[in-house]
């Protein structure tokens, strides 16, 4: 049995190296990690231009206080990419292992499942960080944007969110184990939660019922607070209050995610459905 953190760290390192090796074996994928977000940014830039009056987005200014839609979108995309990295890193990796028939044998290793799940998202997070920095530079050069606030306080605001996402990602991985299908579920959850939370627009444009849902999602306050800190946009509530919500969210989701994943894992073992796909 693997016991203690040194062994766990070795297991994490091994999973990271394995993922890195797989990633480097597909060079097209590596190139596309840079190109694809730029391709998503380009329509956003042109969409904003098609609504610009004399080159200024006066409509957006009326809602948020800023006319810089590219900066507004870039910040939303940066946070969303971490949401996506954790969700896909865990759920999709499970599905891949199901398809290639190695899930059972991996689960037979003495490395705890939680360590394995964490390991699956580590490379994804690393890649996302490198990716975001490179894309940020490219978008700045191509389309231009400006942050008026300080970056460090904004990073501290999103730190508890990242931990909270792991809890959510664990629960989602459990659902993938039951349904044997990852793409639709992860796409649906990851995309729509981020969109409803205001990844692309100020949530104040939503109709009342959707606004109520949006305000119930802690992710909304992450987007809102970070934009408030870096762009000086009008925020939904004082930033300190948004930060407190994110810390509370972290404790709740991690606990819930561990419980859900543990129960589903036990059920799969009892039913013997682990190798089904």
């Amino acid at each position: 049995m693997l016991k203690g953190w040194p062994q766990h760290l070795r297991a994490l390192g091994a999973i990271f190296r394995k993922d890195l090796q797989v990633f480097m074996s597909y060079p097209v994928n590596a190139v596309m990690r840079i190109l694809e977000p730029l391709m998503w940014m380009t329509p956003v830039y042109f969409m904003a231009r098609s609504f610009a009056v004399d080159g200024v987005n006066i409509g957006l200014r009326a809602y948020t206080g800023t006319t810089d839609y590219v900066a507004f979108f870039v910040l939303g995309a940066a946070i969303s990419s971490y949401v996506s990295a954790v969700f896909w890193g865990m759920g999709f990796a499970l599905k891949n292992e199901m398809d290639t028939g190695v899930l059972e044998s991996n689960w037979l290793t003495p490395a705890p499942l939680l360590v394995q799940m964490l390991g699956r998202s580590l490379f994804s997070l690393f890649l996302t960080t490198v990716n975001m920095l490179m894309i940020g530079c490219c978008v700045w050069l191509l389309f231009g944007f400006e942050f008026t606030g300080r970056v460090l306080p904004a990073l501290l605001t999103v730190a508890p969110l990242l931990v909270a996402l792991y809890g959510f990602g664990l629960g989602l991985a459990g659902v993938v184990l039951i349904t044997n299908n990852a793409n639709n579920i992860i796409d649906l959850v990851s995309n729509n939660i981020t969109i409803l939370s205001g990844a692309h627009f100020p949530v104040t444009v939503l109709p009342r019922p959707l606004l109520a849902i949006s305000l119930a999602l802690p992710l909304t306050y992450a987007y809102d607070a970070v934009r408030g800190q870096l762009l000086g946009t009008t925020t939904l509530m004082p930033i300190a209050m948004a930060q407190a919500i994110l810390v509370a969210f972290m404790f709740v989701t991690v606990t819930a995610g561990l419980i859900v994943f543990g129960r589903i894992q036990d059920r799969c073992r009892q039913m013997g459905t682990l190798a089904h796909h």
Binding site: V44, M47, A48, S50, F51, A52, V53, N57, I58, G59, L60, A62, Y63, T64, Y69, D187, L188, N191, N192, I195, L196, A199, H200, F201, P202, V205, L206
Partner: peptide, 29 residues
């Protein structure tokens, strides 16, 4: 059933935000 409805969702509300509360930027579009 769900994706065709959900996929444009983000864009629809982004456009609404860009159009402005009183549609002040709609003429450009």
């Amino acid at each position: 059933l769900l994706w065709p409805v959900l996929f444009p969702f983000g864009y629809v509300f982004s456009m609404r935000a860009l159009a402005g509360p009183t549609g002040e930027a709609l003429s450009s579009f």
